[in-house]
Design a protein around this nucleic acid. Structure first.
Length: 428
DNA sequence: CTCGGCATCCTAT
DNA sequence: CTAACGATAGGATGCCGAG
């Protein structure tokens, strides 16, 4: 057996657990509980309103996939391929609950679990051989227990590092366990198209194919220096290592500290006047500033982003003289950045981001700040944060409070609602 | 020259 | 017909001005 041959002090055993069509599966579980048909058996997807330009397919059933429906495509386009497809709006609160239950089961098999996304975890099973002598049997146990207790299927990939485990979990779906041990790489990984390698996206694929590198095996057998010339020094090195199955990154039980927060919104109607812009920026600043306060962080840098009708993106950022978590200060900065960079072209998207996060240890007083004004802003922030605490985080925005008193704020709120499933109006 | 800041691009869920 | 289509996050890269 391979245990005997390859057992060394450094050999690891890593599982990657991936919920099959997560959002759709989770919706299906709820619907079955309500006596409704199983979305997984019919052409169905989780997606936005097809009449809106923000409406895209977020998750699809296998029958919908057979119709040619692809994740990320506009719902309107998917409907042309698959006219009888059922479209279900997303319910992020449900997904968070399902995700927690899923991760709780996974975590019971090892103390070293990394939450990779809402529906994926890595498990470091190294050293669990006394409890689970057969890794494949252990994976089946995890998979089957999730299905029995929670009603949805997962794929599990098994190998000696995260990359290979993740590649393995992406093999045949659903409800499957696959291995991709190093000795299986030539047979199972090298024949795949380069695009299937983790972190090898569309742009790199295009360059590699142009150079005649089509499969992961082609990449693994190329000269590293050539790859670096094609797709960059660092990326070239990393993807070359990946193609050979090399990945030493640890399973991180503790998530990294957030490096920044952002909020962006695509609108159904073009943004053409600064009167439309400001309430949007305020709402977005409010969201990211509230997040900073909740995480006890302050930012030292603010940036605004926008997208024209031709999908040209522009961004503009600046450093702050002092770290802050005050909504009004970020808003003031964002307004100025926007004014400086917008030439007045119609826009379909506006967003802001804060970066350069620091611990919000102590009050840094600037000589140029007005302490009374700052105190007022803080009190307003605190009042809204208290309401958020009561009604649920992210469910209260300044725009929703302003609803009815200001036409533009109402409009901004209506537009924001359509693409943020977490945020809901405080009323009704 | 190097370094930090900035704009843009790439990739993932 | 094309590409991107969506929100959020993180990283890489190339340019530019300051020292």
């Amino acid at each position: 057996m391979r245990e005997e041959q390859t057992k060394t002090t450094t050999e690891r055993l890593i599982f990657h657990v991936d919920v099959n069509s997560a959002f759709l599966s989770w919706e299906s579980v709820r619907r079955i509980q309500e006596g409704l048909p199983d979305l997984r058996d019919i052409p169905a997807c989780i997606g936005g309103d097809p009449t809106k330009r923000t409406g895209i397919v977020v998750a699809k059933s296998i029958p919908a996939k057979k119709c040619g429906v692809q994740t990320g495509e506009p719902v309107a386009m998917a409907l042309r391929k698959c006219p009888n497809m059922v479209i279900v709006p997303s319910d992020f609160d449900l997904y968070v609950r399902c995700s927690r239950a899923f991760k709780k089961i996974c975590a019971s098999y090892t103390p070293v679990m990394e939450s990779f996304s809402i529906d994926e975890v890595f498990l470091d099973m190294t050293g669990t051989s006394l409890l689970y002598p057969d890794p494949i049997a252990a994976a089946h146990e995890i998979k089957d227990r999730i299905y029995e207790e929670l009603g949805f299927t997962v794929n599990i990939g098994i190998s000696t590092n995260k990359l290979l485990a993740k590649m393995a979990s992406d093999f045949e779906k659903p409800n499957k366990v696959h291995t991709l041990f190093p000795e299986e790489i030539p047979e199972k990984m090298w024949p795949l198209p380069v695009r299937e390698l983790l972190f090898l996206g569309k742009a790199s694929e295009k360059k590699l194919i142009k150079a005649g590198i089509r499969t992961i095996g082609d990449l693994a057998h190329a000269r590293e220096a050539d790859i670096q010339t094609l797709i960059g020094k660092k990326n070239g090195h990393q993807l070359y290592q990946y193609a050979r199955g090399i990945d030493d990154s640890p399973v991180k039980a503790q998530p990294d500290e957030a490096k920044g927060f952002s909020a962006e919104t695509t609108f159904n109607e073009d943004i053409i006047s600064i009167e439309q812009v400001n309430p949007i920026l305020l709402a977005q600043c409010d969201i990211v500033a509230a997040r900073m306060r909740r995480k006890k962080k302050k930012c030292t840098s603010v940036s605004v982003t926008f997208r024209t009708l031709e999908f040209r993106n522009r961004s503009h950022q600046t450093k702050l003289p002092n770290a802050t978590d005050v909504t009004d200060e970020i808003y003031h900065c964002a307004k100025q950045l926007f004014r400086e960079s917008w030439k007045g072209e119609p826009l379909r998207l506006i967003g802001i981001a804060v970066t350069g996060l620091t611990e919000d240890d102590f009050e840094q007083l600037s000589l140029f700040e007005d302490p009374e004004k700052k105190e007022k802003s803080r009190k307003l922030d605190a009042a809204l944060d208290a309401i958020r605490q009561k009604y649920g985080n992210d469910k209260v925005t300044r725009a929703s409070i302003l609803n009815g008193t200001q036409g533009i704020a109402r409009k901004a709120k209506a537009q924001m609602k359509n693409d943020d499933n977490i945020r809901k109006n405080i009323k009704h």
